[in-house]
Design a protein around this nucleic acid. Structure first.
Lengths: 189, 189
DNA sequence: CGTTCAGTTGACTAAGGTCAATTCCCGTGG
DNA sequence: CCACGGGAATTGACCTTAGTCAACTGAACG
């Protein structure tokens, strides 16, 4: 809970009363490895904050799962495409490790926006950051060949790479595990 | 200017005084066909609203331009990756037709956020919409083969397609003009 | 040990890229 | 009104790269 408060304080100041409001609105949640934060076809009802653990976002495509994103400790997680309009999700979210979260429901988040003085501002600043990351992903998908995308991922998230199976990374890079394997061989002579 | 006010009113109510504030903060701007709203390497200093015309976003990649997005009448335009942190842009923005805009500087937007009562909320809701669109683009880049991406684009923006050269669309789809040409032949037997 | 699953490797296929020639379209000027 | 010029689009031949299918290796774990 304290890490959550600190994360919010990165964006806006909080009074002791507001901290109490936050403590009431958020609730703890735990996910076992393999459990889902959000299943395909369900509505994303919660915004989460990861205190510990690792979540992947994936889409199922003709039997194949494509992992499109990861979040870890200190990240807010949400499938906004389902959460914002409150409609069924095409993206699933699954814990790759035992994961501890603080979550807030869609309705309570609206209360947060109203009752915390910088609430709307926090919402704006937070989604701005998420959007920047998404924009970079789009740029890279257009510009960078798989080998470069893989190298970028290694460089950007060296710690995270240690915790991921290679086929998740292949999927994120946009290729099959076999292809990543061959690319890795080419990269290390 | 009225279309801008209406666009903002889609998100938040505005008092007459706030409308005056907005009229002071925004300024008209005109771009000839081919002119740039933002050049590569420059800092994006303005958020814009298109009253008339058409803008493409592109990145230059070893001499090749890759068009990654379009905006038209009624859209807000901005390269947030440059605008938010106020750092040099890798993405350029160019008018494909003579274009009329209302623009607001980064500094004046901060004033807008403070002086208009729903300002922060507008900022949040606006970027939420942009982010949804970006997320859908990511999903499609991972899941959909070029032919499907092309068909989706035709279905989603039939009017826009009329105004675009095919090689811009090819680029958006993520392939070369020659490949799009062959895909089109396959699609219409 | 044997089972299981991730990762690697090989042979082959599929699909987009490249290069180059040709056709189409459209506006301009004789 | 027609001919020409230039950029866009198409087409063909060939290349490059990832996908597919399948076999094999290797490490983890009971």
């Amino acid at each position: 809970m304290e890490t959550l408060i600190n994360a919010i304080r990165q964006y806006i100041p909080l009074t002791p009363e507001e901290i109490q409001i936050i403590e009431r609105l958020f609730q703890s949640r735990r996910l076992m490895e393999g459990a889902h934060f959000l299943e395909e076809g369900k509505v994303c009802r919660y915004l989460g904050f990861i205190e510990k653990g690792l979540i992947r976002y994936y889409i199922s495509d003709e039997g194949q799962e494509k992992t499109i994103y990861f979040n870890q400790e200190g990240d807010f997680i949400c499938n906004y495409q389902s959460f914002l309009p409150q409609k069924p999700s095409v993206v699933a979210m699954q814990a790759l490790e035992d994961t501890e979260l603080q979550v807030i429901s869609y309705e309570d988040l609206q209360i947060f926006y109203r009752q915390v003085s910088g609430g709307e501002r926090f919402g704006r600043l937070g989604i701005e950051q998420v959007f920047l990351s998404s924009s970079e992903q789009v740029r890279s998908l257009y510009s960078d060949p798989p080998a470069v995308r893989y190298q970028h991922f290694l460089d950007s998230y060296p710690k995270l790479v240690q915790r991921l199976q290679q086929y998740y990374i292949a999927s994120y890079v946009g290729i099959k595990p076999q292809s990543l394997s061959r690319i890795r061989k080419r990269l290390t002579p």
